[in-house]
């Protein structure tokens, strides 16, 4: 798929849309991979060392980590059924960061320990808040390009 795309872009260079959108998409996937790694590592540490302290926060962290991994894979494959998986996982992330972020502000006692999504992902430079939006933007752009 990748090779075909770049061939197509190469032969029609200048006349159609340039490749940067797909290109930037690659960087997006890399950042997703990095966040998936960070979330996985963090939740691994939390669950191994202090799960009993905050089961809800740490279960959420683990769930978020799994969803980030699935989203990363779905963005890489990004065709047919995987596109739908990408939409669902990225939508889930956006909902998660908005709901958990808001709840953690309104009622801090609910999430006494950090999860990836507490305070809109502040512990991760707000990347969890920005990334799903960029992901959806990219999915819709690449969807239009293909249709």
């Amino acid at each position: 798929m990748t090779a075909q795309e770049s061939n197509a872009a190469g032969t029609t260079a200048g006349t159609t849309r340039p490749t940067p959108v797909t290109g930037i998409g690659r960087v997006l996937i890399a950042v997703y991979g990095l966040l998936a790694l960070a979330a996985t590592g963090r939740s691994f540490v939390q669950i191994v060392s202090k799960f009993a302290e905050a089961p809800l926060s740490y279960s959420l962290s683990a769930l978020a980590a799994v969803v980030y991994i699935v989203a990363t894979v779905a963005l890489i494959r990004s065709g047919g059924r995987w596109r739908r998986v990408a939409w669902i996982t990225i939508g889930f992330e956006l909902a998660g960061v908005l709901v958990v972020g808001t709840l953690s502000l309104l009622d801090p006692a609910l999430f006494p320990h950090d999860s990836v999504w507490s305070l809109y992902g502040r512990g991760y430079l707000f990347i969890p808040l920005v990334l799903p939006v960029l992901g959806m933007w990219w999915l819709s752009r690449s969807g239009k390009a293909r249709a």
Partner: peptide, 26 residues
């Protein structure tokens, strides 16, 4: 330790400018 390895592997597979950006992100 895994991050630069993954980025470099990506750069070897796909030789485009964006792979260079990904090295930077790493």
């Amino acid at each position: 330790i895994l991050v630069p390895v993954a980025a470099a592997a990506w750069a070897l597979i796909e030789r485009s400018r964006w792979s260079t950006v990904i090295l930077g992100v790493a």
